[in-house]
Design a protein around this nucleic acid. Structure first.
Length: 206
DNA sequence: AACCGAATCAACCGCCACGAT
DNA sequence: CATCGTGGCGGTTGATTCGGT
């Protein structure tokens, strides 16, 4: 027996929101608030939508002061710094960027920033790659309300000679994503951010 | 102008945390 | 303490748009 669905899947509309639906949702929340219950909200608002869908639509597009469009260099830097500290905790990163939503930042990271920082890396994750994060309050990050601890078992980066003769660590992209916040100290993460030129080549120095 | 692959992004899915009972 | 319901989150999908040929 599976988990009970959050709504009657057969009786709800899916796909893009129409302007009429947006208006209904916005009007209802303006008048009554969310009432602390997203599941019953669509029925009350006269919408044939799943509560979760309403919540997403409101949080990502309809609520006041949402900022869309181009990310600034400052925002880029904040995203990169926080990602280095806490990984893909998009909601926490979004909390540090007023007007931006976690969905926006996630999309931006996946489509633009990742490429900007890493370049296009063709490697697949190594077969020995194992990734496991436990969310328990142990390690704190300055400026963030939440504490996290992380554990992991990662394939070590391969050490290669760089052009200046010194040794570097070479990562695959997915390995790097996790290595960022699992293995490096805060100081090392800061160095990592500072060396985005090397990162673009898949190389960086510790 | 037509086609096709790549890029983008809105929306959905499923899991987990947490509060209420 | 156990169970249940809901909110919240991150990963993923798929439709649409864009750009190159």
């Amino acid at each position: 027996m599976g988990r009970a669905p959050c709504c009657d899947k057969g009786n709800v509309k899916k796909g893009p929101w129409s302007p009429e639906e947006d208006a209904k949702l916005k009007h209802f929340i303006d008048q009554h608030g969310t009432g602390g219950n997203w599941i019953s909200l669509p029925h009350k608002a006269g919408l044939r939508r799943c509560g979760k869908s309403c919540r997403l639509r409101w949080l990502n597009y309809l609520r006041p002061n949402i900022k869309h469009g181009q990310f600034s260099d400052d925002e880029d830097r904040i995203i990169c710094t926080l990602f280095a500290s806490i990984g893909s905790r998009w909601s926490i990163i979004a909390a540090n960027l007023p007007g931006r939503t976690d969905n926006d930042i996630k999309n931006y990271w996946n489509t633009k920033l990742k490429k900007k920082l890493f370049g296009i890396l063709p490697q697949r994750p190594p077969s020995t790659f194992v990734h496991n994060i436990n969310q328990t309050p142990a390690k704190s990050f300055p400026g963030l309300g939440t504490s996290y601890s992380t554990t992991s078992s990662l394939t070590a980066p391969s050490v290669v000679q760089s052009s200046d003769g010194s040794s570097c660590n070479q990562f695959s992209q997915s390995n790097m994503d996790s290595y960022f916040y699992n293995e490096l100290g805060d100081d090392e993460n800061q160095k990592l951010i500072a060396s985005s030129g090397d990162i673009a080549n898949g190389l960086f120095h510790f």
